[in-house]
Design a protein around this nucleic acid. Structure first.
Lengths: 195, 195
DNA sequence: GCTATCTTGGAACGGTCGTTTCAAGATGAA
DNA sequence: TTCATCTTGAAACGACCGTTCCAAGATAGC
């Protein structure tokens, strides 16, 4: 019997993701969201709850739609080191050019925000890090099996290092670092593992 | 003839640094600063100007008092790789324990904030990164001279990598990563350079 | 002690914050 | 078509935002 929603919650949430991603949660007002999505406060609150819940939903969507697909592709790639190189190439390209240039990574940004005190946010950050590391590890294990790794290279330790390196890329790209120098650094790191 | 200030601007700025460092600029209100410093709005604005100028002054103070002394010590250290190891040990200890545990690095945090659009802030971030890299480079050049580096290791590329790694440590420590795993990762990275 | 000059306390500014409320509108089953 | 139910628009909430203003207070040279 009831009325149905006159908008697409999924498209709305994607718009919200981009606002929080680019500006951060503390610098994004409800009015910004109302303006960007075109819907009003009532629909917003009825659908998503308050700002914090909306942020958490947006952060989760970011992880599911942006991060995890890339992680899965990396983990499933059978080529080994070339897959890792492609992962970082794509990362740097996404961070420095195109629609989301200089936005950094929403999860990396969340680390620096005051909202990481929220335990639910903290859980998302930890899981995201674990998934990134695991995907890198899976690729590096295959690299090892293909004899692509320099002798004595531990895939686990390398995965830990590359995961932290990715955060550095995310941060510095948002700060304005140019794609070329980031690429050189990452390539040199991968070369140091290479057989 | 005039009256003199009834407070110590330097001590005040240090208090402000800690507020912005811990909570970020967007989540820190002028009222928070008034409460924490004990002085009133008039003195605050007369001495430092508005919030953005205050943030810039606090960020500069952080770099001068917290980052640069450590960078200088690293750059001046003649031991090579042990100096780099000590630098990261101190970094991880400062980030994960003591008074500033889980605060991250104020400069790293600034990368993720919306204020990095301010060109003056951007300049501070870039200079900070350059100084960090240069200090690492200086230490690695000495390591090379001492024969501590694995053959084929380029001190410049290694410095670039370790600088980005430091950002990763800063971010993940704020996110709650434990000191032990960060230490293991960093140690493994340094070992991969070691002769 | 007088006075010019700066500092301080505290109120107040207009604006925006996140959130709530409620009447009017839209929907689909009966 | 009727009606119960949900959605929507718009106004309003109190609280807080960064900032400004000004009278009262403190200081140091005269």
């Amino acid at each position: 019997m009831p009325d149905i929603k006159h908008f697409d919650p999924d498209a709305t949430l994607e718009t919200v993701v981009r606002l929080f991603w680019r500006q951060g949660v503390a610098s994004t007002g409800i009015q910004d969201i109302v303006t960007a999505t075109g819907l009003n406060r009532s629909s917003l609150y009825a659908t998503f709850g308050g700002k914090q819940e909306l942020y958490l939903a947006a952060l989760s969507r970011y992880v599911e739609r942006r991060s995890q697909p890339v992680f899965r592709r990396l983990a499933a790639d059978e080529r080994g080191l070339p897959a890792v190189g492609e992962f970082f190439d794509g990362l740097i390209r996404a961070r420095c050019s195109g629609e989301y240039a200089r936005w950094g990574c929403m999860v990396s940004n969340a680390h620096a925000g005051a909202e990481n005190g929220d335990p639910e946010v903290g859980t998302v950050l930890d899981r995201h890090h674990q998934e990134l590391r695991d995907a890198l590890y899976a690729a590096l294990v295959k690299a090892e099996a293909h004899g692509q790794l320099a002798p004595g290279t531990d895939p686990g330790a390398a995965a830990d290092l590359l995961a932290l390196l990715a955060y550095g890329v995310n941060l510095r790209s948002r700060g304005g670092a140019d794609a070329g120098s980031l690429s050189v650094t990452v390539t040199a790191a991968l070369d140091s593992f290479s057989a």
